[in-house]
Design a binder for these strands. Structure first.
Length: 169
DNA sequence: TCCAATATTATGC
DNA sequence: GCATAATATTGGA
């Protein structure tokens, strides 16, 4: 697929700030945290196809639920075609983590059949284009310590606290 | 093709 | 606790 997909970015106002969702033709392919300013310019909703608009509606509600520590149900399709096969396996595994549960990098590595690739798993998490929906924040290091987070550790801690997940430190 | 970096982990002090 | 080695994957020179 060498074709250049047109990506659309739409802002999502929430109580915690303005998120930015990025859509491809296949579904939601990116999500950005508030805080930093929007380097790119999100659309206001005009000029977006009906399909994407419908997805966006579900994304907004899903995000709202996710920020309250609930498992969103009617999420739009998530486009993970951006990553390598290894990364996709990691993300897929992360999506199976239920709300309120955590997994360690080691456990994920084991699940995808490469127990020694714990470090690579961490790398895949960092490359996760869609945080929150692909719950990379529910992935902790051994001893239940925080590892890192693309949107800032501050966010990871907040998300975990809202799901009643306890972490050391 | 090779080298360095990484959101780790296990071991030894 | 802190330092070190081992290990898989990725991205750039």
């Amino acid at each position: 697929m060498k074709k250049k997909n047109e990506l659309v970015e739409v802002a999502i106002p929430t109580a915690d700030g303005e998120f930015v969702a990025r859509y491809s033709e296949s579904g939601l392919c990116g999500l950005r945290f508030p805080g930093g300013r929007n380097a790119s310019r999100p659309e206001n909703g005009a000029g977006v196809s009906g399909q994407i608009r419908k997805w966006h509606e579900r994304t907004v509600e899903g995000l709202s639920n996710a920020l309250e520590g609930r498992d969103p149900k009617n999420l739009p399709p998530i486009d993970l075609s951006a990553g390598t096969e290894f990364q996709r396996r990691v993300w897929e595994t992360m999506r199976t983590i239920a709300c309120g549960r955590t997994l360690t990098y080691g456990e994920i590595a084991k699940r995808i059949g490469k127990p020694k690739a714990v470090r690579a798993v961490g790398g895949a998490c960092g490359a996760n284009p869609v945080p929150v929906f692909v719950p990379c924040h529910r992935v902790l290091a051994a001893n239940q310590r925080l590892g890192g987070f693309s949107g800032g550790l501050d966010w990871k801690r907040r998300l975990l606290e809202r799901e009643s997940i306890k972490v050391l430190l």
